[in-house]
Design a binder for these strands. Structure first.
Length: 938
RNA sequence: GCCUUGGUGGCGGAAUUGGUAGACGCGCUGGAUUCAAAAUCCAGUUUCUUCGGAAGUGUGGGUUCGAUUCCCACCCAAGGUACCA
């Protein structure tokens, strides 16, 4: 009667699949509970032991909730568009769809072996046309919407047109581009259709705009920051420059305030909310316009400190600022142009991170101070970013450290506008208690008053107004890639037109090559059939383009976050062909009750999906304001890489401890070749690659070659990947599940080390043995002992609390303690063991099912209800008091629970160990906390 | 640089509201069993020690009868930093 985990696990996995045990129904008398894992990208390397960490945690919770009587939705699917499959296609020519399909098949096989309780009938893949049809549809909804700042919600563009026709655009408050001009209803009605479209584009929630990208001329493509290493492309090492490009953007900034406020009502960790708050970056201040002398231009700046406006001694513009070229004087032209070119080579991140090097150039132009009318020199500097605020700052060196450093460096005057502030060494950036001086009408005012008054005066003279600024920028939505959702967009005279829902999905076209075209167009530019026939409503050959009825289609594709911003709703009604999800399904499931995933998504995916949810709600497609009610972060599982050390220039490897000052080159060795004592299987290593076939090994005395170890991200290229399949094969899925939980707190990163897995495995063997008597499966029907009941209920209490707190590592320890105790008590009672099987079922479902069926049940253990904790089994009559001296515990004393404070003190003081510790000293004070501790001071 | 998280034995980690630091597991040491090994079981395992004790939770301060826990400053590591997912 051994614990044959391979047999048991295969049996129950088959049972669950055949009986659709975990299929969720969209209607039930039970309360609903929706548990979701962050969308996996099916990578070519397959699943490694780090991936399932969060899935195991959510599966435990989902199974726990089922025992607790909930109708649980726990689906899974794939975020299957993405760059890696495209890179692979570029290298090998294999279509990304094929790669993706294979990868998904492998993922599924691996996931199935771990025994997850997923409802696979609801699987979705973002790269399936049936799925991306709805992603395209959402894009169209965004295009057909604008944001009404007064009503604080998105509204249809048709309504905006009605407003324009009736009253022009001067009265409405809408989120729009900065450069819209005022027009009356009369003017609007006289505009041509094209002019109207151009203006409406400035209001739409998704719009075309010029944005900066990392352009690599040699590769002819745009690169992700990720693909740039030290300023050059990762592939090939070519230079990368910043370049402007017309792209689709999402007006997420319109939602900034709601995204910020919404954080108050969701159960996410404070740190995650803080990250989003910082990302949104709300700041209250003023917009100030500075006239540029000798021109009609003005430069707008945003400042949080309008109270310091009299301290302005220069202005700094981002080198990319649109006015730079126009205002630069001939004398400064050369210097400015050289500086702009140098800046274009630096990434935004570099510019933000580098605060040590101060650089800039004088444009030769002067602005006019709005109050003093004094000339203010205009500089450019790369510490000002173009996409940030207005891309220009009014520099107040006495009150801002970066301005101060810049002024010192370029010997620009620093004007002191504070009472009693020392600005000889650094800027005075404090606000509280600061009194303004040397500032005309602001003199003698304290920060807060000065701020108000400055804004008031700016408004009076028409040079500015109070403004709230957000750091959050509109999100660029175009990608110059092949493997993404095509935009349902064609162009008539350069103006974007949407394809009707009834003709969607617009399928991704076939191309010969996945690279950009020779003329630098995105990969879809290689497609020969990529034109839209508006008469036939279908995709036709490019030669048919006549700009009469056949028009060119958009060549960009959507980014990775398009499909993942709304997938949670698709699971509610995955197969629906008429709508993205039916109203009934959406009403029933509402939103995700528990979401588990990595904190690396804090400001990307988690913000975008909140944005789309709010938008879809505004337009009446959803009833919920937030997608994820509760969110738990999962930490990364790191790999423990192994290194062998090759002597420089030789094919000779030295064991780690024998390296003695020689110059060695560390090389990653596959972790599979290394045992738990860090010894390398030299033969396996030699056979691994031809270049090592004849290598020599300088070993330790016993003949072993010892490798070096280092904790790094788990990745194929580091040869430190540990595969869950192997673990399932050798120890079983239940062991893997419990071991991953046992490793440490779910939210913390931790290194994977297989060494400890035997402990968890032998725990399961011990658990199994509790149900075995005389080598037979047998449990006693007799009453359990008081000790055993106490053990059981202690465990129920702790494990339940732990699950509710997502402290899975401690509950595994608790199970171990429980089994150790029951073992010592020789407990074999059904009364205890039956409940224990249910208790452990969420963690180790296979063994629990097997035990449950052997206990005589015919239904799956997932239908059993969760054990109830009963306090009465845990009542204690005594407490083992720690007796400490000056806070240090020296010995313990067993005393009755109901003993009074005075009695405790008397008993403790009378004890000879106390007298020995005191060594004839008289204690100054004795602190007694009944039920807790005794501390003797002195 | 900025934002977020973390730092406790040889290792992963535990420690309700400030109240016995090191639970549980690995590893290691010794023993039992075995022809032997695996497996299993038992005992020990923070460090130093003059064997009385003493020190100890990244570093340095502070609050407190008492700090891994609270406060201040610093050091180190990981994640994010807007086109990796």
């Amino acid at each position: 009667m051994n614990y044959n985990f391979n047999e048991i696990e295969a049996k129950w996995q088959k049972y669950w699949a055949e009986n659709q045990t975990f299929k969720a129904s969209n209607s039930s008398d039970k309360p609903k509970y929706y548990v979701l894992d962050m969308f996996p990208y099916p990578s070519g390397a397959g699943l490694h032991v780090g991936h399932p960490l969060g899935y195991i945690a959510s599966d435990i919770y989902a199974r726990y909730k089922r025992h607790k009587g909930f109708n649980v939705l726990h689906p899974q699917g794939y975020d299957s568009f993405g760059l890696p499959a495209e890179q692979y296609a570029i290298q090998t020519g294999q279509h990304p769809a094929i790669t993706t399909k294979d990868n998904i098949a492998r993922y599924r096989e691996q996931l199935d072996k771990i025994g997850f309780s997923f409802d696979w009938s609801r699987e979705v893949r973002t790269s399936n046309p049936e799925y991306y049809k709805w992603t395209q549809w959402i894009f169209i909804q965004l295009f057909e919407s604008w944001y009404d700042l007064e009503a604080d919600k998105s509204r249809p563009v048709s309504e905006l047109q009605e407003i324009f026709a009736a009253e022009g655009n001067t009265r409405i408050k809408a989120a729009c581009d900065d450069d819209v001009e005022d027009f009356s209803a009369e003017v609007w009605n006289k505009f041509s259709s094209e002019e109207k479209q151009r203006i409406l584009l400035k209001y739409r929630l998704t719009y075309l705009a010029e944005t900066e990208v990392n352009w690599c001329p040699q590769l002819g493509t745009v690169l992700a920051n990720d693909e740039i290493v030290n300023g050059v492309s990762e592939r090939g090492g070519y230079p990368v420059i910043r370049k402007k490009m017309t792209q689709w953007s999402m007006r997420i900034s319109a939602f900034a305030e709601r995204l910020l406020k919404g954080l108050e009502d969701i159960d996410w960790t404070e740190s995650l909310k803080e990250s989003q708050r910082n990302w949104i970056g709300k700041s209250v201040g003023a917009h100030v316009d500075f006239k540029i002398q000798g021109t009609d231009h003005k430069v707008g700046v945003f400042t949080t400190r309008p109270d310091t406006i009299f301290g302005v001694t220069f202005m700094t513009l981002a080198p990319e600022h649109e006015l730079v070229k126009e205002i630069t004087t001939d004398a400064q032209k050369e210097e400015v142009e050289a500086y702009i070119e140098a800046t274009a080579k630096r990434s935004e991140r570099e510019r933000m991170a580098d605060v040590k090097t101060i650089s800039g150039a004088f444009t030769g132009a002067y602005a006019e101070h709005p109050f003093t009318k004094e000339p203010v020199p205009i500089w450019i500097g790369d510490y000002v970013l173009a996409g940030y605020g207005t891309g220009a700052v009014m520099a107040v060196p006495c009150g801002d450290q970066r301005d101060y450093d810049f002024a010192k460096h370029f010997e620009i005057p620093i004007k002191d506008i504070f009472e009693n502030a020392d600005i000889s060494e650094e800027a005075h950036s404090g606000k509280e208690g600061t009194v303004i001086a040397n500032s005309d009408f602001l003199n003698g005012l304290e920060y807060k008053e000065a701020l108000q008054k400055a804004i008031l005066k700016l408004e009076e003279i028409g040079a500015g107004y109070g403004k709230t600024n957000y750091r959050l920028r509109d999100a660029v939505f175009s990608r110059q890639r092949y493997w993404g959702e095509p935009f349902p967009v064609y162009y008539v005279n350069g103006l974007p037109q949407m394809i009707d829902l009834e003709h969607l999905p617009l399928h991704l076209p076939e191309v010969e090559k996945y690279l950009p075209t020779e003329t630098g167009e995105p990969p879809l530019g290689n497609a020969t059939d990529w034109a839209w026939d508006t008469a036939a409503n279908k995709v036709v050959s490019n030669d048919k383009i006549d700009d009469e009825t056949v028009f060119p289609l958009e060549l960009n594709t959507m980014p990775g976050w398009a499909g993942s911003s709304w997938y949670l709703f698709r699971y509610m009604d995955a197969g629906n062909g008429d709508v993205f999800a039916s109203e009934e399904a959406l009403d029933y499931w509402e939103n995700v009750d528990l979401y588990i995933g990595g904190s690396e998504h804090a400001t990307g995916h988690l913000l975008y999906s909140r944005f789309w949810t709010k938008f879809l709600k505004d337009r009446g497609h959803l009833k919920v304001e937030e997608p994820f009610k509760k969110l738990i972060n999962q930490g990364m599982i790191l790999g423990t890489s192994a290194f062998v050390y090759r002597l420089e220039g030789e094919n000779k490897f030295v064991s780690k401890s024998l390296i003695d000052g020689e110059s060695v080159q560390p090389i990653h060795a596959p972790v599979a070749f290394v045992n738990s004592s860090d010894e390398l299987d030299v033969e396996a290593f030699k056979n691994w690659r031809p270049e090592f076939k004849d290598a020599e090994f300088i070993t330790e005395e016993g003949g072993a070659y010892v490798v070096g170890r280092e904790v790094e991200k788990m990745s194929k290229s580091k040869y430190n990947v540990v595969n869950p399949d192997d673990i399932c094969e050798d120890f079983g899925a239940d062991t893997l599940r419990m071991y991953e939980m046992f490793l440490g707190p779910i939210d913390q990163a931790k290194p994977w080390n297989t060494a400890g897995i035997t402990g968890v495995h032998s725990f399961l063997k011990k658990l199994w043995k509790l149900y075995i008597k005389n080598d037979q499966f047998e449990v006693s029907e007799e009453k359990a002992s008081a000790d055993s009941l106490k053990t059981l209920h202690k465990t129920i209490k702790k494990v339940t609390e732990d699950i509710e707190n997502f402290s899975f590592n401690t509950s595994v320890s608790t199970f171990m303690i429980c089994v150790n105790e029951l073992n010592a008590q020789k407990c074999n009672s059904r009364e205890v063991l039956e409940l224990l099987a249910v208790l452990i079922a969420p963690y180790a479902p296979h063994i629990a099912e097997e035990l449950w069926s052997k206990l005589g049940h015919s239904e799956s253990i997932s239908t059993a209800s969760y054990p109830e904790f009963e306090e009465k089994f845990l009542v204690e009559s005594t407490k083992n008091y720690p007796i400490s001296f000056n806070g240090k515990m020296r010995f313990t004393m067993e005393l009755p629970m109901d003993m009074s404070k005075d009695e405790i003190e008397k008993t403790v003081m009378a004890d000879e160990r106390t007298q020995k510790q005191l060594d004839r000293r008289t204690p100054k004070k004795v602190i007694v906390v009944p039920g807790k501790i005794v501390n003797i001071v002195g």
